[in-house]
Design a protein around this nucleic acid. Structure first.
Lengths: 199, 199
DNA sequence: TGGAATGCATAACGACCGTTCTATCATAAC
DNA sequence: GTTATGATAGAACGGTCGTTATGCATTCCA
């Protein structure tokens, strides 16, 4: 039938297998089996294993952005919009296909350090996600009219990373709620005109 | 020569290669080459690739504990001892052989989810590290006489995880300093007798 | 002096993996 | 009714990987 359906099924399986078992240890044939698809079909759709990983991450980046957008739209204050990233993690994880641990961090972890010599689409996507989150948090901090928005954004980014790796570790428990509390403290400490004590 | 020296050399190479390039993609022969050791010698020392990984993580856990101990000993107040974990990350990373990103999180990321069916020494080590950090932070929070020490420990654990994955992402910049500031805020928000507003 | 012990180099093995090729089958369009 | 399309199963390829075995050089202790 429609090509896009088959592709989605392949990406679903790849996403699930790659990020619960590891990318390198997951064979292409296992992905095809799980998707109920022939190996040849898989190759016709994504070209190679690298292309498969690239497609998964690209879709994931789009999906994550949409979830975050929705969470921002649902918030009703500038501060709420800034903290909406933690609500987005919740809904994103609850949505189908979202695996336990951050696909971008997992991929970055499993890959050789970026050599810089040759172009690497996957590496590009990893960096795209980092830049997207960084830039957005900064913008939202500016909109919230906080003092030193860059610093607030950096702190929230740290907390965001903390949530993701806490999910992998399964410790501490309920990291998302914990992170939101922490983020609220961070924001409360940076109203306009109040210079922080340390620094 | 002394067996232990050769073993250390093998573990050094394995640690460097495993956690900069990925465990699965790093062949045993490459580790042996990097250590200037024959493959047969490597197998005589660590038994298998799994045994190699296990030995690396075991050494790493010991080394990390020692660094943390030293940082705690260097602090001169209960609060300082609680926050010493972030100083320990600095000195640990500066020490030889410490690679960019947390070996335990990297290993957990690359491994199949714990099945629970059969014993897995590597999985055991990963969980040991998690428990060690959790337990220690809790003890130090109790010693610092803070309100709700378990909650403080959980928050610091989240920040700790945040530092580690921020190092992998290279964002935000200088996560260790950022984390320490954040941790100071967390501790300042939990003096004895002061109930937090939320909750 | 002569064995252990330790390390080296090399090769071989089975297994798996990424990729490609061939051949067959169903469906829908012309 | 033929043709094109997209999918299928299955085999085959080169390559790599983990592991083991063989043979030789060296040090050290008895």
């Amino acid at each position: 039938m429609a090509t896009t359906q088959t592709t989605d099924r392949i990406l679903d399986s790849a996403e699930a297998l790659f990020f619960t078992n590891g990318i390198a240890v997951t064979g292409v044939d296992r992905v095809a089996d799980s998707a109920g698809v022939a190996i040849a079909t898989l190759y016709k759709h994504v070209g190679s294993k690298e292309g498969l990983l690239e497609a998964v991450l690209k879709r994931r980046l789009r999906s994550w952005t949409e979830h975050w957008d929705a969470a921002i739209a649902a918030a009703d204050s500038p501060t709420g919009r800034l903290l909406a990233i933690f609500d987005a993690i919740s809904t994103f994880r609850a949505s189908a296909g979202a695996t336990q641990w951050c696909c971008f961090l997992a991929t970055a972890s499993e890959r050789p350090q970026p050599s810089g010599s040759r172009y690497d689409a996957v590496q590009e996507l990893i960096e795209q996600e980092t830049e997207l989150v960084t830039k957005r948090l900064h913008e939202l901090a500016v909109d919230a009219d906080l003092d030193d928005p860059a610093d607030v954004a950096a702190r929230l980014m740290l907390i965001y990373n903390g949530v993701l790796s806490s999910l992998l570790r399964s410790a501490p428990a309920d990291p998302i709620a914990l992170a939101r509390e922490l983020a609220e403290i961070v924001v409360a400490h940076r109203p306009r005109g109040v210079r922080p004590a340390s620094r």
